[in-house]
Design a binder for these strands. Sequence first.
DNA 1: ATAGGGTTAG
Length: 647
Amino acid sequence: MLTFQTPPTLQLSFAPKQSPQIAFSSKNASLALQNSNNNQLIQSLCKQGNLKQALRILPNESKPTQQTYEFLILSCIGRNSLSDGLDVHRHIVENGFDQDPFLATKLINMYSHFNSIDNARYVFDKTRERTVFVWNALIRALALAGRGEEALSLYGQMNQNGIPSDRFTYPYILKACVSSSYSSISLLHKVKEIHGHILRHGFESHVHVATTLVDVYARYGYVAQAAQLFDEMPERNVVSWSAMIACYAKNGRPSEALELFREMIAKTQSDVPNSVTMVSVLQACAALAALGQVKLMHGYVLRRGLDSILPVINALVSTYAKCGCLEIALRVFDRMNRRDVVSWNSMISGYGLHGFGVEAVQVFRRMIGSGISPSSITFVSVLGACSHIGLVDEGKKLFKSMVSQHGIFPSAEHYACLVDLLGRAGRLEEAIRIIEEMRIEPGPTVWGSLLGACRIHCNVELAERATHRLIKLEPTNAGNYVLLADTYAEAKKWDEVSRVKKLLEAQGLQKVPGCSWIEIKKKIYSFISVDEINSQIEQLHALLVQLVMEMKEKGYVPETKFVLYELDQSEKEQIVLGHSEKLAVAFGLINTSKGETIRISKNLRLCEDCHSFTKFVTKFTERDILVRDVNRFHHFRDGICSCGDYW
DNA sequence: ATAGGGTTAG
């Protein structure tokens, strides 16, 4: 026999059955009931914010219906009041509606809204007639609450009980996979298993189900899988297109994202890009640092009237900053009439990216002053900004203020920023002490920051220690081995250099090739670092040789201390001359007009020789050169770099 | 009745 029992988490305080003290007298209430149906009275009381009173009237004065309760549940959600929700639930039970599967679904959704999962499950457990709606509702609640495993096990039970899943079940189940704590390998296995179920039940061509599949594969980096699914979709809409564009944008394939966007516009009339599409498109432009593309997209945003949508403006701010145009980013930011924490974060990181640490901290303070609470990302941004310019004390203060003033507990990412801040400034001992005293597990980002700093300051011993940890944490990241090898090379420990190189090869890992690119007349040209000259870059190479020769007379000395081969000086110089950034600079010199800033992007940190080379080029050719490396911008002008040689 | 895509960091 199922009876209503109050579980520990469901604290229903039974309201005293006294006559309500209300502006409405009971008489008025009865009258209203005679004239209209009770829903209207309840609704009007709810609209006045008087839900408690509505509930008091309910059993005495009227015969509530399913609809009445549905309305009451929705008002609790609208008013965001869990305690009212509990009251409504209690009334539902008292008035004999507790076995209504429709209301059970609504109650589960309500508890899900309040993230009160135990109560949602309680409703589920007490409901005898579990329709597919009831099952779906609880699966959804569990998936949204990050309890993926429970959602999946419920799905298993659903199958065992012979309840046929429907097209609504699968998007929830796929989300459950994402919100589970499976390791990525068993997760892929799980997603494939669910994918199999979807195929077996014939839901794969359903647009919502297929779009969710695309998204889930994309989230885990299975771009080819996602693309295949997308290609095979018999029906697509703006959401499917957006999901696929986002997939490319997020998985390091920005050109394909832009290509797909163009295809979307060309191929379909019905699927018009919306704000969500544009946010991903802008993200792709930012990844490419393609200022020309951003301006085109900005125009599109204006034409479509999407320029008042906050996430779109936020994306514009951060994209302009990432494309080297801090001025436009600031202009867009200044004109905003409403700003959320993301807007501020975008501007703070924009300043940081361009080496304006002091300004970034000022924006941070303005943000606090305007009453916006900083998020954990705010601190990553502002600490990163301090780190770029070496504001060590300011950064340390901000780090301390996280807990003391803002109640935000530093994550591994924040420690990574702090370690980077100290490490870059050469305070390696202090940095390692921070790591040793961390209360949470220092992840790869933390050791990575330390290793990066060791590489800059040529600290072999600590670099070995950091790499030792990193190899365990991310065994396939070739970058860690390379940083260690670079450190050995600078210390002239050639035996160690070759040992690390062999270690790399033995695991089939490869150094990520240096790649630089430049946008000329809205077209992107990319260059890869080469050890030898080929015909395609002959002209560029000739120009470089000539430049270097002339610059050497003016004092340029190629910096070759980090070349990973034990060669003589001229051979080393030959190698650094093939760096992709120099090729891009030469290409830029040839293909842009005098007075025009040359804008170059690079996938790695700028090497010291390219840095000093570019400084000389700006002095020598009287050109401005803007280089974005993997961390930040360098504004080269008249022989000086905005980073002040601190990067 | 229930469903799908997006923003800020390093």
